[in-house]
């Protein structure tokens, strides 16, 4: 069953008749329930724009987006999001951040305590419940951000390069942790990255995007067994998929550089 459906979604910034920029052109995509879908593409291809449309934070110029058959009409707690930038609320503790969503919808305190307990455990944050964000490292802040989004029990988890600002060691650990959490929580995930290794390591299926205008160029199935460990990075199937995606992206990145308008 289709969890998320995108039909010919286009996004134009500015006036289409007067040099408006087409960020997305006729994006169509079906993400089944429970799938870990990754969108990979060169920077500036509009993948973040697409995620914001799914989140309901922006409105598409044309096309249709639906979750569980219902049209997406503005942001909602059904579509939780983790941003690349650190977006924890600095005036709230780890606990306060995680229970922010449940609190908004009026979940009773006792139940909230259980929810915090569960996701603190799942994301390895035990002992940090009462810490403020400024006391945490970048990796830990993103773990709290993931816990915060999941604690709200969304239908789909949207992730916009959540590990983009982390160093490579932390990043690798966070990828493994995310897969564990995903296995436990059983949510549909839509994950954006420009890192091909990350895309293959995490995804059930990888949508490769082209740049200017952003289109889905190809969808590649990742048939690597789960649970996945870092060993998978050197498996022949992994290398195979990586070679295919790299070729697609290289072509795109080159085209993006050559057709890019002057900076400014």
């Amino acid at each position: 069953m289709a969890k998320l459906l995108a039909e010919s979604v286009s996004m134009v910034f500015g006036d289409p008749d007067a040099g408006g920029i087409t960020a997305l052109e006729r994006i169509s995509m079906t993400v089944p329930d429970g799938e870990f879908r990754v969108i990979v593409g060169p920077s500036g291809c509009g993948k973040s724009t697409f995620l914001r449309l799914v989140a309901g934070l922006d409105w598409p110029s044309a096309g249709r987006l639906a979750l569980d058959g219902a049209d997406i009409d503005g942001p909602s707690r059904e579509r939780g999001m983790v941003f690349q930038s650190y977006t924890l609320f600095p005036w709230l503790t780890v606990r306060g951040n995680i229970e922010f969503g449940p609190k908004l919808k009026g979940t009773p305190a006792a139940e909230r305590r259980g929810i915090v307990e569960r996701y603190v455990h799942l994301t390895g944050l035990r002992g940090f419940e009462e810490a403020y964000p400024r006391q945490l490292s970048g990796g830990m802040m993103q773990r709290v951000a993931i816990a915060r989004a999941l604690a709200n029990d969304p239908e789909i988890l949207l992730m916009d390069e959540p590990f983009g600002a982390l160093d490579s060691q932390t990043r690798a650990l966070m990828q493994e942790l995310l897969l564990e959490v995903w296995g436990e929580a059983g949510k549909t995930v839509l994950f954006i990255t420009h890192d091909i290794d990350e895309a293959i390591f995490l995804g059930d299926r990888v949508s490769v995007m082209s740049a200017r205008p952003g289109r889905i160029k190809e969808e590649i199935e990742v048939n690597l067994p789960r649970p996945r460990s870092p060993d998978v990075l050197t498996a022949p199937e992994f290398i195979d998929i990586k070679r295919r995606i790299t070729a697609l992206i290289r072509e795109e990145a080159r085209r993006a550089i050559e057709t890019a308008p002057p900076a400014g």
Binding site: L57, R77, M81, F89
Partner: peptide
Amino acid sequence: PKDLIDSAYTLGATRKQAVLRVLLPATY
């Protein structure tokens, strides 16, 4: 940061809640 407000929206905040519970404390 606008992302702070957007986070609140994706966590189910109404516009009023985003202003009172996120924008305000962020300025303190």
